[in-house]
Amino acid sequence: MEKDIWFVDDDLTFRFIIKKFLQDSTCEHRVKYFDDGDLAMLAIINAAKTGVTPKLIFLDLNMKYLEGWQMIDLLNEFDRRLNVIILSSSLNPKDIERAKKEPLVKEFISKPIDKEIIRQKIEQYC
């Protein structure tokens, strides 16, 4: 069964890279990209109505409108069963500490990313 995998990141170059990394895989999952946290939040709310929530969310932290941590705050009140992997270029210790404390956040991966790690995480959580 196809699972939804979401990437929430405002960096279009990064999106291109992800696409390249996943294109030749045997991945059967549906991958969706969101430019910002707020768009992803809207999509989550809509997805909940149809009962199809993403299996895994790769989330950037620095975004213009709704930042990664703000989205985590909202998700905490909305659906605590989700799996989130932070995918950020941040090396801020505060971010890393917080990632450990948030039950929603399963992992914290720093950019640049490795193709194999992304694939492995998708296998692991889906």
Partner: peptide, 21 residues
């Protein structure tokens, strides 16, 4: 410092990945 680190690391990370591609 953090924002700068982020804003430098982001394109640098992209450069690294793009070069591999």
């Amino acid at each position: 410092a953090h924002i700068t680190a982020h804003n430098i690391r982001s394109p640098a990370a992209n450069l690294s990945s793009l070069t591999k591609i």
